[in-house]
Design a protein around this nucleic acid. Structure first.
Lengths: 199, 199
DNA sequence: AACAATACGGAGCGTTGTTCCGCTTTGCAA
DNA sequence: TTGCAAAGCGGAACAACGCTCCGTATTGTT
């Protein structure tokens, strides 16, 4: 079953060869451009890099969110799947949560401008926000619940707020050597503990 | 001594009457537009509201940062001055810090888009970033130092990181009823304590 | 080879930031 | 009051961007 069929339920007619080529070229080009110019890079720049017209990019990826999602789909999936794995392999649920959040932070800060895009009030990014929430919130909630059930952390922070907070802390990390998101997120996670370590 | 002289050292020639009128009109218009459309509202919208040409706005406020700073100058000043006052009136330095951060958060979340602008990688906002840092970092550092000296909090977070983190947590609070910046910031501040309260 | 379906390209529109320069207003001096 | 230089004003105009639309080209099939 092709990746495409996975979305359309297996009944979609095959795409034309040139369409497939262009879609792949666009994905490759977008991935490259996102690295150098960030996820808000001009559409024209991506189209040029893919040697494709403006119209083609909009046909394959109607909104910018669609393109970003397509580019990072696998990494988001991997992050989501790491949750249960960490829960099984880590000593405590809180440790698993901390490690998983670390993965999430690593992902975000290596994607130039993604954290900012996630909170952008631009309407076209709502889909992106929703996608990340859809994939990661259940995982985060599971880890959070496990830690609460184990009596390790306070219960007054839900998965949504936690993810948003973490995402926010990752905004604008590029080009600011004085700021590092990781310790801030660590502070947040440590702050969740019911009996924090003396420091 | 006029507000203007305060900047130019008292030797500047008086501005023309129409220039003064227009500058005030622009400040009023900008303040109003910032409330409804955010601090990134189109220049033309502000100029229109002030009944002024596009050129005039650029003459008085060459960059957007200049305009934003001029509009919020007094509030930032008030926030800065509240620091020492809170330190004197509060029971503990940590309490003073918490209250001061609260003031800062209140200021940020009531200014549509300001927190986001502060971290924007747009070059024209660097000045804004610098201005806030210049005014608020010393105050924040004083409160932080006092709390550290009193043995209340850990010393591993400097004023810059704290302000950035708090600012980041305030991004995108408008139009998201599921997220509230205050508890997140509270978590951060509580997390600073060496002997956090059992919860 | 002919043809219909599919996909492509990019001209073109609307929106924004920003500059530039001919014209107007102002304040002062004669 | 009037004349005039300096200061200030307005908005046309240009560039960069998102996005749409439709005439043209490509593809797969008969």
């Amino acid at each position: 079953m092709s990746d495409d069929d996975a979305q359309t339920g297996g009944t979609s007619p095959r795409k034309r060869a040139d369409a497939q080529r262009n879609e792949q070229a666009l994905l490759d080009a977008a991935a490259a451009v996102f690295v150098t110019s960030g996820v808000e890079a001009p559409v024209r720049e991506i189209a040029a890099k893919a040697d494709v017209g403006i119209g083609t990019i909009y046909r394959h990826f109607p909104t910018r969110a669609d393109l970003i999602i397509a580019v990072y789909r696998h990494q988001v999936q991997a992050c989501a799947e790491a949750g249960p794995a960490l829960l099984a392999s880590s000593g405590t649920p809180h440790a698993a949560l901390a490690q998983w959040i670390d993965l999430f932070v690593d992902f975000l800060i290596t994607k130039h401008g993604l954290a900012a895009a996630l909170q952008s009030d631009n309407a076209s990014f709502e889909t992106l926000h929703a996608y990340f929430l859809d994939r990661l919130m259940p995982v985060c909630a599971e880890l959070l619940d496990a830690a609460v059930a184990a009596g390790e952390i306070r219960r007054d922070l839900d998965a949504y707020r936690l993810l948003r907070g973490v995402g926010n802390l990752c905004i604008g990390v590029d080009g600011d050597s004085r700021y590092d998101a990781r310790p801030m997120v660590g502070l947040l996670i440590t702050g969740l503990l019911r009996s924090p370590p003396t420091n």
